[in-house]
């Protein structure tokens, strides 16, 4: 794999950083990242991963852009209302960097599709917003041995960590063995 001249120019500020360099930029280009969620977390996550030149981005979400999303889900424009979020986010990312490949999965992640999907990627990034999906992602990442970069938000609080039990680290269940009672789950 190589970079073309346009890419060399685009990523030149990376190429001159010793921590990235040509070797690092090629690693980014070879990388395949699957993002779950194209909302509040998925917007900045996808926009930056796309801009820095991740070679292949997968985006899973089943929702459509709503007016109430616009104040925080910054990848979606007012003109995107009613469109699938995966399409809106894809278009925003590609408008900034058309070198990358984006696979959209306009569907709800479930037991039937998760394993096959995860197998195609190197790293999973969880930006989902409910406990069912969070446990599903955790378990599937464990079974497919993929590192999981997990983020969640509630009101004015955020949590971020990496679950990678395959390399000796904890998984989501080590931290939260059971979901909170239904009455305490924020809607």
């Amino acid at each position: 794999m190589t970079l073309n001249n346009e890419e060399i120019s685009r990523y030149s500020r990376h190429l001159t950083l010793p921590e990235v360099g040509m070797g690092g930029q090629l690693k980014l280009k070879e990388a395949k990242i699957l993002m779950v969620g194209a909302g509040g977390l998925g917007s900045p996550l996808g926009m930056y991963l796309g801009a820095v030149g991740i070679g292949k981005l997968g985006i899973v979400d089943f929702d459509v852009v709503d007016h109430t999303n616009l104040h925080r889900q910054i990848a979606h424009a007012a003109s995107d209302e009613g469109r699938p979020k995966v399409h809106s986010l894809r278009d925003t990312i590609l408008a900034g960097n058309s070198n990358i490949e984006i696979d959209v999965h306009n569907t709800r992640l479930d037991r039937e599709n998760v394993m096959e999907l995860f197998e195609q990627y190197d790293v999973i990034a969880d930006g989902s917003d409910n406990f069912e999906t969070r446990y599903l992602i955790n378990d599937a990442a464990y079974f497919t041995k993929k590192p999981l970069v997990s983020a969640s938000i509630f009101r004015f609080h955020g949590q971020i960590t990496i679950f990678d039990p395959d390399s000796g680290g904890p998984c989501y269940r080590c931290l939260y063995s059971e979901p909170p009672p239904a009455a305490l789950v924020p809607s």
């Binding site: 509040g40 917007s43 900045p44 925080r72 990034a125 955020g158 990496i162």
Partner: peptide, 12 residues
Amino acid sequence: LPGVVGLIQATE
């Protein structure tokens, strides 16, 4: 808030 958290996630 999601911006801050999503960008830390991207960095990782």
